[in-house]
Nucleic acid binder design. Structure first.
Lengths: 236, 236
DNA sequence: TTTGTAAAAATGGTCATACCTATTACCAAT
DNA sequence: ATTGGTAATAGGTATGACCATTTTTACAAA
């Protein structure tokens, strides 16, 4: 049994418009077809096209001008990747590297700030989460699951302790994109053991409120990923 | 003569729905009225309501479930502030502080990374921008402009040198929110002279590729803002 | 020829209504 | 008590008409 995928029309239209922008290599400021034309080309009703346009506008991909037309506003590969099958593997790896750098910045900062406010209870929760995670991974090992394991809950927990809702949101967004693009990476680079050990190092550093140690631990955790990306990019 | 504000209906509906969520203190998972009810309450057509819902959904404020209903997904004060007159000044200052902390993280990181890749030409552009900016400010001084001066181009320039498009986008978003909320802050805290001097310090540190100096310069620039926020919050 | 203005065409914004599809709850049959 | 169908509810889509703003066109005046 496989889950039946139900594609809503307005989302399909979003994809189509993005793919139109890409395949015609439209640049910022370029004009898109009119609502009526889009509707007739794609064989959907105008309200559906308008719903799709509102989604695109909310994501700042397009800019709609009353009486004038619909214009490309920003080419956002991160957003595009949510709607399009990935074309160029090299571009994908580049994005992944950019994401990893963002993670390095964010997770380091969050961990340092978290260390300033974390209660013993919260530290304990970090340890608990990590050990139960580790246990789960051991169990999963027995079934030979092929899909790459991507779980960023641990990192999110730290940002939650920090408590800045704006950065928490940012972090979640990064993770979402990370999961989307991660499959391109060689998963062997990051064994479960290394991963687990890295996490423990990070928690300990937070517990000791040791800024230097935090920076080192997070950096060592993510730098591996970044250099893996860099290496793969250069191979292509 | 004042510019006539032409409020598009679907945007007005977005505001109304947000204000409905706030005034009824809805929490995540709570259900909103049906599309048809919203349309009749607000006295607009259902397609307009749907367009507004698509905007809200794209911003992850709501979650629409076919056949089931419309549910609150996330309370995002940052997004809300774009649509609502700010109610509570204390909450606003708190948000501003969170934003400032985000800026501290982002601008420090961007400056350090920029220093690694900046060409002499780019460094020169930073100096040029800053001096021309400073000149403009001197001139503006003569006209007693009342509105607080908010210009974050300088910071954006640095992030551009770094070149990570994902973080650049994030930075722009922060700045947009910053401008929206900034008016609450006592502008006297940051005279043009201090500002200009801080910027020069930052450029010099980047030029010297001196990580410590960069951290110090950016931190000293933004910490002033953060502590101003903290002070004001405690007063309330 | 150039310029200003008004009409017309193009294009996004809104409305009303009808019908399709998914979810949920309820009730009957087992 | 469990199963399975059915109706009510609520979101999804389609049409076609009309409104509002912008751009273009056409023509008249200078």
């Amino acid at each position: 049994m496989k889950p039946i995928k139900k594609v809503l029309l307005h989302n399909a239209v979003v994809s189509e418009i993005i793919s139109y922008i890409q395949s015609n290599a439209l640049k910022e400021g370029d004009k898109l077809p009119t609502e009526r034309n889009l509707a007739s080309f794609l064989n959907v009703s105008r309200p559906i096209v308008r719903e799709a346009l509102k989604i695109l506008e909310a994501n700042e991909i397009i800019k709609i001008k009353h009486g004038s037309g619909i214009f490309v506003n920003k080419l956002d590969p991160m957003f595009f990747s949510r709607y399009l099958a990935n074309d160029d593997e090299k571009a994908l790896l580049l994005r992944l590297k950019e994401l990893a750098e963002s993670r390095l910045m964010l997770e380091t900062f969050a961990a340092i700030e978290a260390s300033k406010v974390a209660t013993p209870q919260q530290i304990k929760e970090l340890y608990d989460h990590e050990s139960s995670e580790n246990l789960n991974l051991q169990l999963m090992d027995e079934n030979d699951v092929e899909k790459p394991y991507v779980n960023l809950e641990f990192e999110i927990l730290i940002t939650k302790i920090y408590g800045n809702p704006f950065l928490l949101d940012f972090h979640k967004k990064i993770n979402e994109l990370w999961k989307l693009n991660y499959t391109a990476l060689d998963t062997n680079s990051f064994s479960k053991e290394i991963r687990h050990n890295d996490h423990i190092q990070i928690i300990m550093a937070i517990e000791n409120k040791d800024k230097k140690a935090i920076e080192k631990a997070v950096s060592s955790h993510i730098t591996k990923i970044i250099s893996a990306c860099t290496a793969l990019i250069e191979k292509k």
